[in-house]
Amino acid sequence: MITTASTVDPVEPAAQRSIIFADGYLNKLSGERIEYECRRRLETGCRELELNFSNTEIVNSIGISILLGVIDTASDKGARIVFSEVNDETVELFEMLGLTKHVVIE
C-alpha cells in the first residue's frame, strides 16, 4: 500500500508492507501526522514500513524526533523500518544520531 501523509484513509486496513512518503511534513509539528499514520499501520498488522524520502530535501531536529517516535513504535511491535531514497546528507545525519542502528537504508 502506498500513501502520503496527506492522503490517508483512516479505515483502510494496512498491508504487511506500507510505504509512506515523508514529503515536507516531517520538519514541522504537523509531522506528528506521519508518526500517527505509521503507528496506525503498525497497530493494524503492518510488519514492514517504508518511509520514502524522495521529496524530502533536508530533515531537521523535529523530523529526527518524529522518525525516532516511529522507530520506537516499530521496535515495540517487532516491525521493520526501511528508509528509502534518502539523500547522502540526510544519511550522514541519520548515522551521526544513531538512527541507522534501527533502520535499513535502501
Partner: peptide, 19 residues
C-alpha cells in the same frame, strides 16, 4: 502546549534521544 511539544521534539531530535 504546541511550544512545549515542539521543544521536546527539538531537544530529542538535536541529540537523537529516543523518548
Amino acid at each position: 502546549q504546541e511550544t512545549i511539544r515542539t521543544s521536546l521534539h527539538l531537544i530529542s531530535g538535536a541529540l537523537g534521544i529516543m523518548r
